[in-house]
Design a protein around this nucleic acid. Sequence first.
DNA 1: TTGCTCCTCACGTCACGTGAGGTGGC
DNA 2: TTGCTCCTCACGTCACGTGAGGTGGC
Lengths: 138, 138
Amino acid sequence: MRIGALAREAGTTVRTVRYYEEIGLLPSDPREAGSHREYGEDDVERLRELLRLKSLLGLSLDELREVMAGEAAREVRRREWQETSDPAERERIVREALEQTDSLLELVRRHKADVESFEAELNERRQRQAHKLRELVA
Amino acid sequence: MRIGALAREAGTTVRTVRYYEEIGLLPSDPREAGSHREYGEDDVERLRELLRLKSLLGLSLDELREVMAGEAAREVRRREWQETSDPAERERIVREALEQTDSLLELVRRHKADVESFEAELNERRQRQAHKLRELVA
DNA sequence: TTGCTCCTCACGTCACGTGAGGTGGC
DNA sequence: TTGCTCCTCACGTCACGTGAGGTGGC
């Protein structure tokens, strides 16, 4: 899969993918200078998650880098998982993955709470306006 | 109220206020060159609303300008309201205000739906991980 | 061979941050 | 008079957009 396909699948532009690689948000396995980049399905997923965290929660690329420290660890965990069959090891890996998911959920819920409080404020405003309208029509 | 107080009250910086004035998001009543800007309580409210629409929904300043066409109209409505006592006129004004509030609510609800669908996806991921953990421990 | 996509500079833009140097009001 | 805040340039930065000019793969 080349860069154009990746960008299309993830819903962004080729330039954004190159920029994310430049600043280290996406992996840049060493290529011959001028040769094409190659990507897989997990790159699509990773990029999609980055884009959603950015557009929905408004995180900066620096903040994304911190969150993605967890995401990079996620891939490492997958590989470790394949390489071990020790149940104790596997349990540790799953517990780490759970922690990462929980911290993302925390972020999303906090943001949702802010959105809901704004929504509530607008609803009150609507109530007042509707009330005023009823007064006038009555 | 001067620019520093306005920025503090609204939770932003002096530079941002000046920039918003420069691009026409905040009013720039003509001053003598070099003299101080003056603001009131409604400027605080307007700025707060701008900042929330930007940070929560991720709107660009161009998009804010469109939304604020409605907000500017809101102030105009307030003045019109004071100047008329004709019930038909007043009814029209309130109906316009309601429409503006409803369109903001639409924006907020759409965004909230996106956030909730991301939250749901993370919750599913959490479920799968918790399930895997139970398998390992059992 | 012809299109389409890819590559690397490199300058432009949006939304401000951050001094530089100077002036106004309690 | 001394601080603090204000003012206007103006250059810097972050997260890309947008060509310019050239190369690679079906």
